[in-house]
C-alpha cells in the first residue's frame, strides 16, 4: 500500500523533530496517524511505515504489539475504552461496564454486528477524580462521571451520527 502525499508530508514533519538518523523516534506518532486514517494497523500498513522509516518490518510489529492503543485487528467505528482500574471501580466502573455489555449485547473485546461499537477496557486514564470514565478514539475525548443515563445518551448520539 501507498500513503498519500499529504500524509507523507505530515510524516516528514514528524521525523524533522529528531536528530539526523534518529527517524525511528517518529514511529509512535506515525502509527497513531496511520491508525487515525485507517481505523487500525494492518500488516500492509505497518510494512509501509517500515518502508518509510527505513526499518525492518519486525521493528514496527514489535512496537505496535507492545502498546495497548494500537489495534492490530479491525475494530468498530467507535472503540469505547472504559477504565477498569481500582479508583474507578470504587465509584462504580464495574457495574457500568456490565450495563454497557448488556446494552450493546457484546462482551469485552467484541464488536457489535453492525460494526459500530467495539468495547474495550483500559487502565487508569488519569481521570480518577471524575470516574467512571471512558474515551473514544481517534479524538480520545474523555466522557467522565458516567452514569447509565449518560451512557444511554452517548450511545444514542453516536448511533444517530452514523
Amino acid at each position: 500500500m501507498e500513503f498519500s502525499q499529504e500524509i507523507k508530508r505530515e510524516f516528514d514533519q514528524i521525523v524533522a523533530r529528531y536528530p539526523q538518523g534518529r527517524q525511528k523516534s517518529g514511529l509512535l506518532p506515525i502509527l497513531h496517524r496511520v491508525q487515525e486514517e485507517y481505523g487500525w494497523l494492518s500488516t500492509e500498513a505497518m510494512n509501509a511505515v517500515a518502508g518509510y522509516l527505513q526499518l525492518n518490518p519486525i521493528e514496527v510489529y514489535e512496537v505496535a504489539s507492545f502498546y495497548t492503543m494500537f489495534h492490530l485487528r479491525p475494530v468498530g467505528k467507535y472503540v469505547l475504552e472504559v477504565c477498569r482500574t481500582g479508583p474507578c471501580c470504587l465509584v462504580g466502573a464495574e457495574t457500568l461496564l456490565q450495563y454497557l455489555q448488556r446494552k450493546l449485547n457484546i462482551g469485552i473485546g467484541e464488536t457489535t454486528p453492525d460494526g459500530l461499537f467495539t468495547l474495550k477496557t483500559v487502565e487508569c486514564l488519569a481521570s480518577c477524580g471524575t470516574g467512571p470514565v471512558l474515551q473514544i478514539g481517534p479524538e480520545y475525548l474523555y466522557h467522565e462521571q458516567l452514569t447509565e443515563q449518560k451512557l444511554d445518551q452517548l450511545i444514542d448520539s453516536l448511533r444517530s451520527k452514523s
Partner: peptide, 23 residues
Amino acid sequence: QPGGGAYICGEETALLESLEGKR
C-alpha cells in the same frame, strides 16, 4: 511526543526507549 498506552513508559528509562521508537 505521544506514548502508545503503557504504564511502564512512566519509568524514566522505559520512557527514553519509547521516545527512541522502541518497546
